[in-house]
Design a protein around this nucleic acid. Structure first.
Lengths: 247, 247
DNA sequence: CCAAAAGTGTTTTAATTACACCCATGA
DNA sequence: TCATGGGTGTAATTAAAACACTTTTGG
């Protein structure tokens, strides 16, 4: 591979929906420099790396994600650059970066991407996850390495805004066949709020791209729910008509 | 000033509302390298420059804008990084960059900012504007230098999205005292669509941060319009309650 | 028969849309 | 007195919000 630019990196915030636990998590990478102390989360960072000189930012993000996690064909969305000269705060962090990348580091601007995936489907490479990668709950993420807590906060805002504006690939998050309860739970986790079940269903009922299959769940110890699927083509068509927001 | 990073720049897309002409314009900077030929807009670029190593991206954008245009205290919003290695397309563009900055250029990632201002109030520095800067109509901007036409397209999307989400400083665009017609025209120019006058006024009537002054226009050859002002504090308060979009 | 989640409707209130005429002013 | 843009209201439709009980299944 060609030469790494010492002042330019990409970082990937991977949001994972855990359908079983009904939780939203993020994928973090454990650095090896402070191996054992009680340093809280400061060994945890997002998968990221310096950018090579012959790749675009998007390519770089795809490559880095694949190298560090095994994840590929993930739809990453660039949402922001972070460039405070003091974002690598501590000498030890600078030192870690220099040892890790093998180049002299002065100041690094990072271009941040996010993606939303299903934890149980796209599981990162098993070998890597064992010693380096972890899913952690999104509410348990204070004090990440560098300025990654700040990056996380901004990525959540971007995610929510994009989700509301419907540009977002949120249906990859559910199983092919899903219940309305799972769908509602997804909305609630991403937007961080609760909705009324009946009103939610009324609204969903109008979205022609959420299609009832004839089938029901089985094996559940309660009334089985109707299963639905997501229709991509109808969804794309429905996105045309988004122009009636303010006024 | 300290050393410039040869692979990192900022660019500023300055949208200017021209209240007289009722037009939305952008501020472009004329490069001096192709001085006379019929090169269309390819000598025109956004004000931008390489980033110094000891400044944040935001600081860099503020500095560059001030140096190149005289504009200061403008609320710039970062909206996107552009990093295709081929974004500096032509050898002549690379050559221009190298001569202009005096450093060897390989590939430049640019962090793009936008701002919305009133043309008649914040006028860029007069000496500069005469030979380097021009306001051009937003619909007349094909084929700018580098990838700046693409950057413009993306900045418009960001502007519209931010405007709808109300995070945006759009009332700086109007005179302190403005008419509802001016307000509507601003909405239409920014969002690129037309609204019904009565429905617009009905909606505006509910926004408590748009306050009628007792006064009317004068000197106009028709029924004079009521003047309004914008109440910053009430606007800030009203922004709290933005959480009821989708569902 | 019990626990657990699914499923379902109505009423009230607020927002959106479409639409056309008279008014005040300066020239 | 005319040209110009300012200003106004209603009715119909659609969306939003609040709210509680019955159904089906497995254990």
């Amino acid at each position: 591979m060609s030469v790494l630019n010492p002042s330019l990196s990409v970082d990937c915030v991977i949001f994972g929906l855990d359908t079983q636990e009904q939780a939203l998590k993020i994928l973090v990478y454990e650095r090896d420099i402070f191996p054992d102390d009680n340093s809280g989360n400061k060994n945890l960072k997002f998968p990221g790396s310096l950018v090579a000189d012959d790749e675009s930012l998007d390519e770089s993000a795809d490559r880095v994600l694949k190298e560090l996690t095994g994840l590929k064909n993930i739809c990453l969305k660039q949402f922001r650059a972070f460039g405070d000269p003091a974002r690598i705060k501590y000498d030890e962090e600078r030192e870690w970066s220099e040892r890790h990348y093998g180049v002299k580091i002065d100041r690094v601007v990072t271009i941040a991407y996010y993606a939303l995936i299903r934890i149980d489907e796209h599981n990162p490479d098993q070998k890597l996850i064992k010693d380096k990668l972890r899913w952690i709950n999104i509410d348990d993420t204070d004090n990440l390495a560098f300025d990654h807590s700040y990056i996380l906060a901004k990525s959540r805002e971007a995610l929510q805004q994009d989700f509301i504006f419907q540009n977002v690939m949120a249906f990859e998050l559910l199983p092919k066949k899903f219940t309305l309860q799972q769908l509602q739970s997804m909305y609630e986790l991403i937007l961080g709020s609760k909705f009324d079940k009946r009103n939610f269903r009324k609204k969903i009922g109008k979205a022609e791209y959420i299609v009832p299959l004839g089938e029901k769940q089985n094996g559940v110890a309660h009334k089985p729910a109707m299963l639905f699927r997501f229709d991509h083509k109808k969804f794309e068509r429905s996105k045309e008509g988004i122009r009636n927001f303010f006024i």
